[in-house]
Structures are given as C-alpha cells and as structure tokens.
C-alpha cells in the first residue's frame, strides 16, 4: 500500500468531514443564499459581509474564536456537553462546525448569484399559473440553478478537504477522530519525513485538480433566455 494505516485513517476522517460538512453547508447555505438574493438593504449587505468574512480572515482568527466558543466553560460548549455528555472542543462535531462556517462563502456565493439570476418575470409567470412560492422554487428556480448547486456542493466539499488552520486550532490532532490529511501532512513535515509529506501533498493536488477540472469541463446547462 502507498499509504500507512494512520494515513488511511486520515483520509477517512477527511472524507467523512467533507461529506458531513457539505450536507450541512447545502442545508444551511440554500435558504441563506435565497434570503440574501432577495435583500436590498443594509441588513442584507451586512449578512453578506459576515458570510464572506472567512474568505479574507486568517483561519487562525476564526479558529481562535471558535476555540473560545466551543470550550467546555463557554455557552455553546457547555450546552453541547449538557445535551450529549461529551466535550465539544477537539471532537469531530467541532470540526464540522468549524468547516461549515469556514466554507460557507464557497456555497452561499454561487447559489446566491444563481438565485438572483433567475428572472423575477419567470416567477411571476409561474405565480399567475397557480404556483405557490414553494412550487415556484421547486419547479422553476431549482431546475434553473441546478448547475450552481453542483458547483456549490463541489466547492464546499473541496474547500473542506483543503482546510488546515481552523482545524489545527479547534480539532487538535487525534488520529481517527480529528486528524485530517492536511494535518497529517504537517506532522510529516514537522518530523522531516518529506517523502511521506510529498505523497499526501501530491494526492491532494491530484484530487483538487481533478475535481475542478470536472467542474469546469461540464459547463453543460445554462439559464436560457
């Protein structure tokens, strides 16, 4: 085998984290993007800025505040411990929370743009044909934004795979629980094991490149006129 058992474990944790995070990202990002796409005033702009913050903040800043919020004596951490009986900081759920916040702009922005690009005139046409807003969303908006959903999910997934700073701050480095690929690679470098580091790095480059290539190749369906 190319990878050691510990590295395979890191691959598994990474994929699990990316998958779970993507599910939450889509569930949270879709209504948020829909809401943002309809906002005109300052409140919308403020929320948009908040969502976009992870794009420019150093991940360590985000990680630092998350660490404080998730600590056992902080409200969120305390609530979690009270309901689940487990500590939140340095756990897999903590990683999911961090990833979702960190990757949110990658999901919300393409969706928001897609929603905004669906002409209101088409939704009006659907409305006078008897479609409720829910109907309009499912039968008009969703199909017209299909590609953007794929883009959003893929970017959310890929970005979570590539996450490092936030995880380092809030996840620690527990094999099988919170040790993801990027952290494992960092460990190899710390230990001067450049060969192993290179294997992981090449794997990550290959994966990311393939995903982006597939995404850009399949421009496929666009909103027609």
């Amino acid at each position: 085998m190319l990878l050691s058992p510990a590295e395979w474990q890191a691959v598994a944790v990474t994929l699990r984290l990316a998958t779970v995070s993507t599910v939450f990202l889509m569930l949270l990002g879709t209504p948020l993007a829909l809401w943002l796409a309809r906002q005109r005033g300052s409140l919308g702009a403020l929320c948009e800025a908040l969502v976009a913050l992870p794009l420019i903040l150093p991940p360590t800043v985000l990680g630092f505040y998350l660490l404080l919020a998730l600590a056992p004596n902080a409200p969120v951490g305390e609530l979690w411990q009270f309901t689940t009986g487990r500590q939140l900081a340095f756990s897999f759920p903590a990683l999911v929370i961090g990833s979702v916040i960190y990757s949110l702009p990658f999901v919300v922005q393409p969706l928001q743009q897609a929603f905004a690009s669906v002409p209101g005139s088409l939704r009006d046409a659907a409305a006078v044909l008897g479609a409720t807003p829910r109907d309009q969303f499912l039968s008009i908006v969703l199909p017209l934004c299909r590609r953007s959903f794929i883009v959003a999910a893929a970017l959310g997934f890929a970005h979570t795979v590539g996450e490092f700073g936030v995880i380092l701050m809030i996840g620690g480095n527990i094999p099988g629980e919170t040790q993801v690929l990027s952290i494992a690679l960092y460990d190899h470098v710390e230990a001067m094991d450049y060969g192993s580091a290179n294997r992981l790095a090449i794997g990550l480059v290959g994966f990311s490149l393939l995903l982006l290539f597939l995404l850009y190749r399949d421009r496929g369906w666009r909103i027609g006129r």
Partner: peptide, 17 residues
C-alpha cells in the same frame, strides 16, 4: 396563485428548462 386569472405578457416568458 390564488386568483382565477391567467396572464399573457408582452414577452412569452416560457420556462426555458
């Protein structure tokens, strides 16, 4: 969607998909 009217607009506004 609760009014018993239908509307033909100046542009056809057909659903492209």
């Amino acid at each position: 969607w609760r009014r018993p009217v239908a509307y033909v607009f100046q542009e056809p506004r057909l659903f492209p998909h």
